[in-house]
Every structure is written in structure tokens, then in C-alpha cells.
Simulated assay, not measured.
Amino acid sequence: MRPGPWRQVRAVLFDLDGTLIDSAPDLGHAANRLRTDRGMPPLPLADYRCMAGAGARGMLSVAFGMTPEHPDFGPLKKEFFDNYESCIHDSTHVFPQVGELLQALQRSGVPWGVVTNKSERFTSLIVERMEIFHHASVVISGDTTPHAKPHPAPLLEAASRLALPAQGCIYVGDDLRDVQAGRAAGMATVAALYGYLGEDAEATTWGADANIEKPLDLLKTLGLA
């Protein structure tokens, strides 16, 4: 029998970037191309890593120290998206143990899916080009519903498509927004401590129901290992 709060779990939902896939190299490359196209030197890709979960906002803050309020933010954001689309799968890969984790869930008869703030424009390319995602039972992008995380709408939509109550799902993510969205949806939450934690993040204080240091730890949490 599964332990405590995990007894009701019938499906597992995951954040994408920083939880299942490491897309930081391609995001950083797309941002660096903005710099080199303007005669500026590229930054080390490691500089972008902690902000990879924040998408264009995070990449432009690292590349140019720019916030969304800057008048050039909109045009640069569009250019960044075009750059990213052209290199979206050059270096992106699943984190170690993720493949084993998803296969173990499938063997246990536990469906899994993806709920990300990444727009469908990019999510669809990742799902198409990375075979492991062909087995996902549901994929919800940042623009699938009118609201993105930390709003619970994307998670509730995923549960609905799985024909499950929200309480029958758990949500695993590497950002405070993931925990907030999961809790607002009425799901148990798991913080992935191996992901794109911001420099000042204190993930153990987010209030998740469990924290995992590596993907396969989730199987122990759920009583499946």
C-alpha cells in the first residue's frame, strides 16, 4: 500500500523545463545569439542556468540586465523566441534517471503527463522530437488555458483530460510556482531539488508535500520502489 498522502495517487503530472528536461543550453544559446548579433561577447552558458525556468524573461535579464518594463523587451523577446525555435533540440536532453522514472510509472500502470508554462509553439516541438514524450497521457502548455501557473487552471485541465479528480494527481516541479499551482488545484506536490532553482531559492520552504534530490526518489515517495 502506498504511504500516507500518496494513497490516492492515480496519475503523476510533471513540469517540463528543469524537471524532466534540461533545456538550459539551448535557451542560453538563443540568448547569446542576441548578444553576438549585436557585437557583444557570449556569456558562459552556466550564467543562464539558474534562470532557465523563467523563459524569455529570465534569459533577457541575464543577457542584457533587462526587465519586461524596458521598451526594447518586446522586440528582443520575439527575436529570442525565433532564435530558440531554431535550436530548440540541439542540446536539450532529459535529466539522468528521468527515462527510468517514466518507464517505471508506466510499468506500474500510473499514467503521467506534462503541465508546463512553455507555449504550445515550443512544447509541441519538444514532444515531437523527443520520443520519450510520445508516451505522455496528457500535455498542457502555458497557453492551453487562459491562465498559466501559478494559477491552477492548467493542472485542473490536465486532470480533466485524464478523467481524474485533481486529488487523484500529484504535481512535480522545480519552481515555487509549481508548488503554488499544485496546492491551489488540490493536488499533492513534490519539489524537484535537482532542477533550475534560482540563486536565492529555498525550495524546502515552499511547502511541498515532499522534496526529491533526484528523479528516481519519486518512486520511493510513492511507495513504488
Rank of each mutant, 00 (worst) to 15 (best):
R2F: 01
P3D: 08
P5Q: 10
W6P: 05
W6Y: 14
W6L: 10
R7Y: 03
Q8D: 15
V12L: 13
V12M: 08
D17S: 06
I21M: 08
D22N: 13
D26K: 05
L27H: 03
G28E: 04
N32C: 09
L34W: 00
R35A: 03
T36G: 13
T36S: 13
P41C: 01
A46Y: 03
D47M: 02
R49I: 03
M51H: 15
M51W: 12
A54S: 13
A56L: 05
G58S: 04
G58I: 04
L60T: 04
S61K: 12
A63N: 05
G65L: 00
T67F: 10
T67E: 15
H70L: 07
D72K: 02
G74C: 12
L76R: 13
F80L: 15
F81D: 14
F81K: 14
Y84V: 05
E85T: 07
C87K: 06
I88N: 06
D90M: 05
T92Q: 06
T92N: 07
H93N: 09
F95I: 08
Q97H: 14
G99N: 14
L101S: 08
L101H: 09
L101V: 01
L102C: 07
Q103P: 00
S108V: 01
G109V: 07
P111A: 11
T116S: 15
T116E: 13
K118V: 09
K118Y: 10
